[in-house]
């Protein structure tokens, strides 16, 4: 359902057109066999991935006991991620989940900031425009479905079929709500990220369209802040969901007293 915000075109004097135009829901389609994919999302994603991989290679190319330069930066990020994962999942079981939560955080963070910091508009695509990969609902839903799979995997791996016990654990009356939660979790995760990033880019776009210079800067800064927070929120919630699946309702108190 392409939805254009070309209604703002009443502002379109020829001067504005070159500066900014808003397009939502227009995509640069690639056709793979009978499948359609959003090319602009993939281009931006590959860019983000290459940034991450290059940064990682630079950081670990010449790894040293006393960190310097890129290694120092990535170790800072690594410490942050480990701390976040440990806080969410707990000292005992957080280690295997660090790569997942960490990749989520780094990927979303770099995606969001790339959308805010890199002048994608300078690169013209035949259709649609380059932006943060996270402002496409496909990306965010893919990520949140992965989170769902991850916490189900965590639960089943820890407790086997006993994982289902958590649905009826305090009382079977809450069973519908417990089942509903498994749908609302990915839904809220994906829409929160998608909505925030898309809204941020739209606000900046509209402001740039109305007042091209300086005025949008505070909103852009706010956008950077929101982007970072959204990455943090996504990673934190993913950790919290995994923790919930690992703990269940039954042995929660046991854990607290241990």
């Amino acid at each position: 359902m392409p939805l254009d915000i070309e209604m703002l075109n009443f502002l379109d004097s020829p001067n504005f057109v070159s500066l900014a135009a808003l397009e939502v829901g227009q995509h640069f389609y690639w056709h793979i066999g009978s499948l359609k994919v959003h090319g602009q999302v993939f281009l931006a994603t590959w860019f983000v991935m290459s940034v991450l991989i290059v940064a990682s290679l630079l950081a670990t190319r010449n790894i040293q006991q006393i960190p310097k330069g890129m290694q120092n930066l990535m170790e800072y990020a690594m410490d942050f991620i480990r701390e976040l994962t440990r806080n969410q999942i707990g000292e005992k079981e957080y280690r295997p989940w660090v790569p997942f939560i960490g990749t989520l955080f780094l990927f979303i963070f770099v995606c969001n900031w790339s959308g805010a910091l890199i002048p994608w508009k300078l690169i013209h695509l035949p259709e649609g425009e380059l932006a943060a990969p996270t402002n496409d609902i496909n990306t965010t839903v893919a990520l949140s479905l992965l989170v769902s799979i991850a916490y189900f995997y965590a639960g089943f791996k820890k407790k086997g079929l006993g994982y289902f016990a958590k649905y009826v654990q305090p009382t079977p009356i809450l069973l519908p709500i417990a089942v509903l939660e498994d749908f609302t979790k990915p839904l809220s995760l994906s829409f929160r990220l998608f909505g925030n990033i898309l809204a941020d880019e739209l606000v900046v776009g509209v402001l740039v369209l109305l007042v091209p210079l300086f005025v949008p800067l505070p909103v852009m800064l706010l956008g950077l802040f929101t982007s970072a927070i959204q990455a943090l929120v996504f990673a934190t919630l993913a950790g919290a969901y995994i923790h919930e699946a690992l703990e269940g309702h039954g042995d929660e108190h046991e854990e607290e007293h241990a």
Binding site: M1, P2, I32, V37, V41, F42, N138, T139, V141
Partner: peptide, 9 residues
């Protein structure tokens, strides 16, 4: 805006 396709998987 909510057009899901092969991008997701």
């Amino acid at each position: 805006m909510f057009d899901f396709d092969a991008t997701l998987p």
